Simulated assay, not measured.
Amino acid sequence: MNVLIKNATLVNADTSERADLLTRDGIIERIAPNIELPEDPSVEIINAAGHYVIPGGVDVHTHLNIDVGIAQSCDDFYSGTVSAACGGTTTIVDHMGFGPAGCSLHHQLERYHAFARDKAVIDYSFHGTIQHIDDSIL
């Protein structure tokens, strides 16, 4: 999808300015005070005068699909990422729960990739802990 957002107030970490923003295939191609394009039916034009365009947020510590034995999260990767997207968050870094005792270093990573596959609607990554050290982990 190609989109030209015109007359917006673009907000970044260090500035805000009135400008136009052109995306092609979901990637920002150009930002300029006034972008004029030849007639192109593949470009949707949005007049955002009086509106702000801000970068999506990143939530660096979520708990989706987590089960700690005595409690389990109510959100999975679908409901949790839909909720995040509705609030303007475009990326999460999920904290993986502990795996079974003695599991391989990649056990939980593989499990959480399976949880997220075909369910997450935004970008995601993982972080966790090394729950034990042995020769195979090292």
Rank of each mutant, 00 (worst) to 15 (best):
V60C: 11
E36N: 13
D20S: 09
N12V: 08
E29T: 15
E110P: 02
D76L: 03
E44F: 02
R117C: 05
P38R: 01
K119C: 11
G102M: 08
L138H: 10
I28W: 09
I137S: 02
P100Y: 01
E39A: 11
D40R: 07
G80N: 00
I45A: 03
H132C: 05
T90D: 10
I122C: 09
I133V: 15
Y78C: 05
T90A: 11
G87K: 00
V121Q: 05
M1E: 03
A49T: 13
Y78I: 08
I46G: 07
R117A: 15
T62E: 10
G128E: 00
E36G: 04
L4D: 00
V53E: 02
Q108D: 04
R117P: 03
H63A: 07
D76F: 11
I133Q: 01
N34E: 14
F77L: 04
P100T: 00
L10M: 05
T89C: 10
Y78P: 03
Y112H: 04
A85M: 00
G57A: 11
T129E: 13
N2Q: 09
S79C: 08
A49L: 08
I27Y: 08
I130N: 09
T81P: 13
A114C: 09
A13E: 07
E110A: 11
H107A: 12
D76N: 15
H95Y: 14
D59Q: 06
H51K: 14
E44T: 15
C74N: 15
H132K: 00
D20V: 08
P100S: 02
D76M: 09
K119G: 12
D94R: 12
D135A: 15
Q108G: 10
C103G: 09
S104R: 14
V53T: 06
Y124D: 07
H63S: 08
S16L: 12
A19H: 06
V60M: 12
P41T: 04
I54E: 00
A116N: 11
A13K: 05
V121S: 03
G50E: 07
G97R: 08
F126V: 12
I66S: 12
I133A: 08
L10H: 02
T90M: 06
P100M: 05
T91C: 14
T89E: 00
T91I: 02
A49K: 13
D67A: 07
I35S: 09
I70D: 09
M1C: 06
S136W: 09
I122D: 06
H127F: 14
V121F: 00
N7F: 01
K119S: 14
C86F: 02
D135T: 09
I70G: 12
A8R: 06
K119W: 08
T9D: 05
R18H: 10
E17V: 15
A32Y: 01
E36T: 14
F126Q: 11
G97K: 07
D76Y: 10
N34S: 15
C103L: 01
I45C: 04
D67L: 04
S42T: 15
E110S: 12
Y78L: 14
H113R: 14
K119Y: 13
S125G: 15
A84Q: 05
R117V: 00
T81A: 10
V121A: 00
P41S: 10
H95A: 14
L105A: 13
E110Y: 04
